[in-house]
Write a protein that binds this DNA or RNA. Sequence first.
DNA 1: ACGCTCGGGACAACCCGTTCGT
DNA 2: ACGAACGGGTTGTCCCGAGCGT
Lengths: 202, 202, 202, 202
Amino acid sequence: VGTILNKGEKTREMIIRHAAEIFNKRGYSGASISELMEKTGLEKGGIYRHFDSKEELATEAFDYAWSQIKQYRLAMLDKIVTPMGKLRGMVDGFLEKPTIVSGGCALMNTAIDADDGNPALRAHALKALNEWLGYIEALIKQGKKQGEIAKGISPTRTASVIVAALEGGLMISRLSGNRVAMKEVRAHLHALLDSIATPQSL
Amino acid sequence: VGTILNKGEKTREMIIRHAAEIFNKRGYSGASISELMEKTGLEKGGIYRHFDSKEELATEAFDYAWSQIKQYRLAMLDKIVTPMGKLRGMVDGFLEKPTIVSGGCALMNTAIDADDGNPALRAHALKALNEWLGYIEALIKQGKKQGEIAKGISPTRTASVIVAALEGGLMISRLSGNRVAMKEVRAHLHALLDSIATPQSL
Amino acid sequence: VGTILNKGEKTREMIIRHAAEIFNKRGYSGASISELMEKTGLEKGGIYRHFDSKEELATEAFDYAWSQIKQYRLAMLDKIVTPMGKLRGMVDGFLEKPTIVSGGCALMNTAIDADDGNPALRAHALKALNEWLGYIEALIKQGKKQGEIAKGISPTRTASVIVAALEGGLMISRLSGNRVAMKEVRAHLHALLDSIATPQSL
Amino acid sequence: VGTILNKGEKTREMIIRHAAEIFNKRGYSGASISELMEKTGLEKGGIYRHFDSKEELATEAFDYAWSQIKQYRLAMLDKIVTPMGKLRGMVDGFLEKPTIVSGGCALMNTAIDADDGNPALRAHALKALNEWLGYIEALIKQGKKQGEIAKGISPTRTASVIVAALEGGLMISRLSGNRVAMKEVRAHLHALLDSIATPQSL
DNA sequence: ACGCTCGGGACAACCCGTTCGT
DNA sequence: ACGAACGGGTTGTCCCGAGCGT
């Protein structure tokens, strides 16, 4: 962002950008270097100059995808000030734009793809998940401190439920080919948020 | 089950059984016929005698996995009579035994794996999903008819939320390596079920 | 022909009939037992009961094809009495019906297919070729004896030229997709036959 | 020829050279990439780098074989000036060196091999055939213009007959294992050429 | 005797990720 | 950054035999 990159670094970033999409669509073993060659216009040698192996490429691609997702989702919540507002905005954002990198949610895709074998990739996905959960938990705590959210509410539970419902809803919607499940999940989560808000904050 | 199978049909079923596990663990393109050869003890000729292609094998393997899951989950709920009881049992069953076929939930795995490319497999997963959603919706309707569930409750929403939360929770738990998320989701869903129950039924 | 065949022999003959067509179309290595299975409606075991190997099948199929060709071509010449008439009839017959077994001339196909490797098949083709050449040579000799063909004419040369021109013409015609070459060859061979006839016989 | 080739192009040409021989000997389906690997000393990857498929390899191999044949046959006729002389030289050349690429005449082999299925290869063979026929027809026309060949002679017929007889004769000779038929055909074609020559040119 | 069911194992064509010299 | 080559992997087809049932 604003960083000045020399030629090699720009190429590397360009490769990662295309790789992120390919890995997200095809999965680790379904992705192929040849498809990456086509998309980037580079030869194999040109790719392997920047990465030692497919696995390294995959992890960097995931990190890139996740950083894009974070950037987009957080930017959306930037102008909202209250924790509760941010939580509602996050839920709505998932319905409006469920997919940042084409191919679905990179976190879920990678989690499912890497959970048997490929521990390196799995670790990166886990880190991303914990960032997300942690962000929500922090919002809950902040909301409680600010009197916006009731004292008894468990940050862990709320975070788990929100992430689970959003991801599960996205999976259903993508498989069904419609947004029905996502909309239902959104309505449910708004109701959940209503229920954890303090009376005076409503 | 009690069916009498001749030799070929037994072999075919044995292949599918192993294939279900392999496909569920590795995904479609990560699965290889050679691994299936090792597991079954058969040579290629012996496998391809029963299936025309990897894709046919994959769809049959998924169908088998799904039938196993249904059978197990439904058997668990067999002795429960009320719709609400069945719903609670379903939620609890997911925590107690989240995985029937090793490698995770075959439905979610296949949904994620097949959503870009492989429309045949995707169609089978979609059918399974709709069976599940439909089963829950039917329980809700039945509960309403029996006065156990409040009239205003939307079967579609409830079904979507339950499935989404369970699957999303499972994804989180598998990635985290612990059952925290699953437990939180269970608690949340029980609260949801409490909230849709009629006062007198509690 | 008129022979009474029991069940096994009838099946065997039926297999050969289909095999002749397949081998003639696809060549030895291009032909596959599975295609033969489809055509015959038999399973592999049912085929291999009657033949020990693909090679045996191929040679028997060729012999069958050649016998069909001979039968057809000779029957056509049956009512013609003079040697010269038979020669002209043979040339004309090639234009009218260049192919008895579908896929082209079995003799040429097999000769080309088997000339590198597959000596058994090659031997059968050679035998067939010699039969044909011998038949023509015999006609020439008979024609000379009967005063229909000039004394100085070489049977070997005439036979070689006729067979070569007919087969070469057929190859050209099949490749071109039209009968031009066959017609030119026929005209030429008729001129050749004119030139070897004795003056009084014309 | 005098072209400067870089490494890849040299390898590619080397592969084609070996492929031409293999395809000419074994036919399309009888040829195998493994044999090509042995002959070239390359591994699979090294071959498939230069060609996308067996079919592409086969057509390029045929084109190469045909170019070799043309080059040799035409070089032989280079010092001969009259059309009639070139025709006689062509006929004689076929007896002296009937085969340029080992395995027989690539044109006839490919024509027979590809006439059922493999339309791409067939098209290349057809093009080659038409080049040859066209070359002879051009010689005939030129000979007529120069008064060396009688006016009434049909170029098409003469070309068809010459090619048919040569190819047919070659087939017989290769099958018989001797040159008898080729010699007879040569004698016959010389007589044919005598007969179409104008009196004064003899 | 005949035909089918089942399986073996070699081999087919082709693509993979990767390395290395230039 | 490319171009060339490697070698092991992929799915799938080949021909064939052993054994069962009719």
